[in-house]
Amino acid sequence: MAGASKAVTDSRANLPFVYRQYSAEQLREVLYKMYLIRRFEEGAEECYTRGLIHGTMHLSIGQEASAMGICMPLAEDDQITSTHRGHGHCIAKGAEVKRMFAEFFGKTSGYCKGRGGSMHIADVGKGNLGANGIVGGGIPIAVGAALSSKMMKTGKVVVSFFGDGANNEGAFHEALNMAAIWKLPVIFVCENNGYGMSTSTARSTAVKNIAERAAAYSMPGVIVNGNIFSEVAEASHQAVARARAGEGPTLIESKTYRHRGHSKSDRNRYRTKEEIEDWMSNRDPITLFESELREFGFIDDKGIEAIRDAVAQEIADGIEFAKASPSPDVRDTGNYVYTEQA
């Protein structure tokens, strides 16, 4: 979803950042992808309920603007590390939903050939180095990828997504410190959805805003409304520019909310129905973005309808692809433990 655009026109001069930065076509593509993330997760949830997908999954429904906004300025060979709630990041970085569905179905055509599932979804070809089952596990790895970029002078920028829960892991602090002392091209993106499983940030985290922790590592700490695509994308643009210029890391706190529970075992006893309802009705990132697009004249109802239909088709095709794909042979269980050597 690379890049810069020509489209800074006078008529858009007073509009929010992304409407000045990107073409109408690019912005409609963003809406498409936000719907694709939403419908992918709804589709996966339904397949899970019907027993077609086993294990568990962590849905990011309600956080789509965060994934899309952060990935907006990234080039295809820029890299990300993701989290257990990583389906949106994967799609935002360019993955095909059919191969994601195939992975969730445990099929050989899946991104991890059925070995990883939802929690380890990756798309190395598009720069997604993988979701991670360990909270904070991907943060030092992202710093290592940024060190590679610096040492090999590839110019790549690396984004490390993590949640609010990870900001209390030692790995977070160690990684931010190293990225800062070595001025590495990495962006730390804390998607703060208010709860680490059931424990609210108010109960778990000594600072009011996680972005404040950036001060401890002498890097900019930026707070954005994670449900407003333009705000997220603007912060990401600035952080990417800073990283590419060799000025070092940035911590972005993207404040958002997950509509669903933590995972499939969640009985939702730690938040009120009113709170969830408020976020769903009044702060839904897709609704907010769609309204802006409509208001600023980038799309009309027909255009939105067309996007919804096309997404529904891609999701249906993806699920069919997954169903029709072969399962791995049990005799191949030992594959990929070590690199096969000729």
Binding site: T81, I139, P140, V143, E174, A175
Partner: peptide
């Protein structure tokens, strides 16, 4: 922990 992770990430990326 962080240092080992940085080494893992660097190895993962070439």
């Amino acid at each position: 922990l962080g240092g080992a992770g940085v080494a893992v990430g660097a190895a993962l990326t070439g």
